[in-house]
Structures are given as C-alpha cells and as structure tokens.
Write a protein that binds this DNA or RNA. Structure first.
Lengths: 337, 337
DNA sequence: TTGTAGGCGTTATCAA
DNA sequence: TTGATAACGCCTACAA
C-alpha cells in the first residue's frame, strides 16, 4: 500500500535474472541452478518478497482458498467446526474466507456471492437459510459440502457429484434422548424449539414421533423459543411451567443452559422438579450446575471432515460420502436422585 | 472448475458488446445506455456471471479483503471479536480471511504469510505470540491493528502511522476487581494465572500491585494454571485449597467457570467458602451457578472498532487511536450472603 | 455512448 | 540451465 510490495520483476532485476528464472527458483522447480537458486532465495528473503496470490490464481486457475459459511461464530459449536475446518485447511495450504450470517438470508446470499467472486476452490455451508438447490446454483462449479445438514432434500439424493453432506443424524440422537427419558420414568416430556432451521424441524418431528411411539403423544407438547440464545430464556419459563412437563428436551445446549438459569431464578429444581436435556455437547454443558445431559456432536471432527471431502473432490472430481454419529451423554440434569 | 465460469468476455460476446461496455454497465457507471445496461444486467444474471476478484484486485491494487488472526475460535470471547469484525467488514463489502493459531507460533507465521500473499487491505491481530515488531515487519505496507493488545511495547509508542491498537486496559479492570473484593471484606486473595500471553503477565502484575497497595501483599499469592481451559481445573483445586484463600481472581472466565465446577465437586461453597472472580464476561458467566462476577470486555465492539480503524487507515493513510474501557460486573460469585 | 489497447503479477510454453 | 512471450480476467485511459 504505502510502499508497494516487491514484485517478481523487481526481484528479477535485483538478482539480474529473468522473471521466469526467479519464479522457478523460488518454487525450487526441478534441480535448478543451485547457485542462482540461493541468490534468488536470499534476495527474496531480504526484500520481503511474497508472491501475489491473485496473480497466481489467475493463471493456475485455483485460488487455494476455501469458503466457510457459518451461522454464528459466537456459538461454541460453530466455533469448533470453524476451528477444525481452519486447521485442516491450513495444513493443506489453503486459506479460509469465513462468513457468519446469523439469521439473515440477505447476508447469506452476499457471502455466497463473495465466495464465488473469490473463486473459492471449495465451500462448506453450515446452517444455510436457503434451499440447498439455491446454494448449489450460485456456487455451481465448485465442490460444496453441507455441514450438519439435516435438510430432507439432501437426505434423499445427491444433487451433484461435487455436492456432499456431513449429516449429524439428529434423528438417532433425538431418539436416544427420548428413550433415555422414558427409561428413567419421565412421562410429561416437552420439546422446546429453536430457530427456523432445518435441524429444528427434524429434531422436533423426531421427538414427536418417538413420543407417540412410546404412547406418550398426549403429553405437554411443544414450546417455541424461536431462538436458541440464553438471553430470552426467562420469558419462556412461565409458558413452560403452565404445561406442567416433567422433562424438557431443548433444541440445543445454549437454550438448555439458559433455561437452567431461568428455572433456578424461578425456584424450579433441576432435575428434582424437572429434567432438562440439551443437544450438541458444547463445552459448558459439562461444567454447568447441574451438568447437562445432551447429545454430543463431534464438531471439530466435522469441520476437518468437510475439508477432507473438499480436497477429495478437488483431487478426484467426485465427492466422497460422509456420516457422523451422535452420541448421548448422560449427566446430572436428567437423573432423578 | 468443472465447467469454467462465465467471464466478462463471454458475456460481451453474448450480448454483442465490447468487454468494456459490459464492465461499465455492470457497475452502472455514469448514466449509461439505459437500454444496453438492462440487456447486460439480464444476461449477467441469467448466466450467473460473478466478476473474478483476483483479476479485479490485480488491476485496482486492492483486494477488498481483511485478515483476522485470532488465537482460538472455540473461545467465546474470540468468537465475539470475530463476529463483530466479520459483520463490520461485510457491511463495507470486504471479505475476511481468518486464521486461528492456538499456541503455535509456526502457525502464526504461516497465517501472516498467507495474509501477505492475498494482499489483504488490512489485518487485525489478536493474541499474537510474536513480538509486535516482527508482525509489523512481515505485514509491512498494510494497515494493521492489534486487538486486546496489552503488550508493553505497544503501550509505549506508535510503531508506525499505519499500526494501531485496541487496548483493553486490563490494569484498570483488575484494579476494580481487587478493590471490589477488598471492599467486601476479602483478605486472602489469590491470583490464578493463565497462559504465557502478555495479558496474563499484565493482569498478574496488576493484582500483585493492587494487593500490596491495600496492605494485603502477604496473602496466599499466586497459583499457576498455565492454561485457561476448564479441562484442567480439577487438578488445581488441591493446590488452591492448600493456600487457604478466601477469594480467587482468575485470569479469565473460562478458567473461573472451570474452577466453579471443580470446586463444587470438591464440596467447596462459592461464594460462601470462597469468592471467585473471572475476566472477560463471556456469555456463560451470566448464567453460571453461581453467576460469575467478572470484568466485561466489549468483544464484538472491539471487532467492529478494528474494522473501522482499518477502513479509516485505508481512507486517510493514518491510523486512528482507540481505547476501550473495561467494566466490572458484580454477580453472585463474589458476594457473601 | 461505445470500442481498442495496454497492463496488473504470475505461471507455463516454447525456444535458445 | 535460462530467457522471451503469451496468456489468465478485469479495469481504465484514450480514441472513435
């Protein structure tokens, strides 16, 4: 900016060689002139030469960049996915452009547009607010993987050879939760719902179905929190207590932890008066008071897998399949003492 | 990739115009031919044309990209900074390349190298493991801001007109904590330290000084956790109890929350037997049991400020100054009932 | 109002 | 082992 960076041409003039020589020497092509190579490397070093990746990507037709679309970096689960993704990408020499979109479809569209503009070599999408087909359409020729994607559309078919999905299998996770609660004698089980994401729909439907299968379909039913943030939890407590449930299955841990706090304020004893179960197993679930029963998602692992799948797709022009398994973690919040 | 994307030239041939016409029409230059503009826009739309930002940045000498270096995306504080940063950047039409480095200096160096390669128009660095001068050197001509930077080097002088810092003023934060505890009758106050970052050194030194100033210098002294993660908290409890403190000032909230859990396991009552104070005011501090007294850092605000400072520096070629103020938040964990 | 031409920094092809 | 030269996709004078 202030002082423009040194270019390949500058460097060539400095060492008195042609640009192509310098370019090759820098990437230690085949066994090159061992003597000029050292001269070049030393000059590059001392002048702080760093190749312009825009120029490079223009000619090699690859940006060595991945895009990561994620709902909310403030959320520890998403942070873990991002961490896994970023680390695995860095190891392979890729940069990652990140975009967090919260609940805003306009921001999502903008972000995908930016990814396309940067010609990202691969893109991972988590918690999209659009239909998968739309996402695929705007990112067309790039490998794409949906992370923690419960969208029914994706479950059914592979849209394209270069479109993959890491599914969390929320269905089995939620079935395990209901099973656990029923086994432990809970009968009036309510689902406290989250945002308008596909995952919320799947989890809610699964709870409903599992409850019905256990002959508990006439319970307190569902309560809608709308969001999963702890902020609004206290407003929910009255609504919840009115229904007189003996167990709460929450959309996710953030919601559950917020409720734990709000219930304590309201003088409700967990798990004595009411069991509470979350979903995701974020780090705070293990150290809350009471510690939270939940379904673990291997979040960092999912981030890493996403990168591996993208790399695989770039390499082989075919997207590998993937499936991760949820795991029930039973802690204090759902065990009657 | 598979099918190469439509280029400006393609589009020009499609609509039967020259590339420059299309280019200008797309950016709705001045009042252009209203008729061809529409034709162009429609064609771009239907063919999914997205300008190649590598090519663009090559000619305009600006990447419309920021780099964000952050220690750990899993950490809610860092996640908040990243969120603020990313949102503000997106609003200004900038992409952000993110890198999380954990405790690995090699990763940090690589990340900075990548930023330089992408010719990021600005870079924000949080929790660097290197000396500020090194960082400045490798990022030379780009505006740079250190976030939550307590490094003494930075406090003293402005390294460069394009290098800025958002300081957290940990000193005043910690002084407020000590003051609060002393006012509330605590006498045996210990500091539980975190990782080898500058911020830990500053916080520890401040506590020590403030304690001495209150005539409490002969207290239980310091305990080193080494890291701030809750994982290792239980191993600390014995070490802590041996010193018989009546209050614990922790390096940060993660450490404090981990200790809360570990102390509960050990049968220690907080705040009855022992007060615990954190630092940062991450979201879980407000809903823990007991709720945690801590020092609030305006994390998202800091992320946003970083972007604003970078934009300012790009605009005016001078880095604006910034300072944010910590704020003590008193909750249950430090109030004897 | 529109078109032509040159160049941004790099890599790759083809000669020397 | 090295050096010209031609792209890559876009923007921007300058010309028409």
């Amino acid at each position: 900016m202030s002082t423009a960076r040194v270019t390949l041409l500058d460097l060539a003039q400095i060492v008195g060689a042609s640009p192509s020589t310098v370019s090759r020497a820098l990437r230690s092509d085949p066994q090159f002139s061992l003597v000029t190579r050292l001269r070049v490397l030393r000059a590059a070093e001392s002048h702080g030469y760093v190749p312009n990746s825009a120029a490079r990507s223009l000619v090699v037709k690859a940006s060595r960049t991945f895009g990561l679309l994620i709902p909310d970096l403030t959320d520890p689960l998403h942070g873990q996915v991002a961490t896994g993704f970023e680390h695995e990408a860095a190891m392979a020499g890729y940069s990652v452009i990140i975009a967090s979109i919260l609940e805003d479809p306009a921001r999502e569209r903008m972000a995908l547009q930016l990814f396309a503009g940067h010609r990202a070599d691969g893109i991972a999408v988590m918690g999209s607010l659009q239909e998968p087909d739309e996402v695929v359409a705007t990112l067309k020729p790039s490998p794409l993987v949906f992370v923690a994607a419960e969208h029914p559309r994706l479950a059914r078919r592979h849209v394209d050879v270069l479109v993959g999905a890491i599914r969390a299998d929320d269905v089995r996770g939620m079935e395990a939760v209901v099973d656990h609660l029923v086994q432990n004698g809970y009968r009036r089980i309510a689902y406290v719902g989250g945002p308008r994401r596909a995952s919320n729909l799947v989890r809610r439907a699964t709870v409903r179905r599992a409850l019905a299968a256990s002959g508990l379909g006439d319970g307190p039913g569902e309560i809608t929190a709308g969001v999963s943030r702890w902020r609004s939890a206290s407003a929910l407590v009255d609504k919840i207590l009115n229904k007189r449930p003996d167990a709460l299955i929450c959309y996710d841990d953030k919601l559950a932890l917020g409720l734990l706090d709000a219930l304590r304020s309201a003088g409700v004893n967990v798990p004595g008066d009411l069991a509470v179960v979350g979903f995701d197993d974020i780090v705070y679930a293990a150290i809350s008071h009471p510690r939270l029963t939940t379904v673990a998602q291997p979040a960092e692992e999912m981030g890493r897998r996403a990168v591996q799948m993208l790399l695989g797709a770039i390499e082989t022009r075919t997207m590998p399949a993937s499936e991760t398994l949820p795991r029930l973690v039973v802690r204090e919040s759902s065990i009657r003492s």
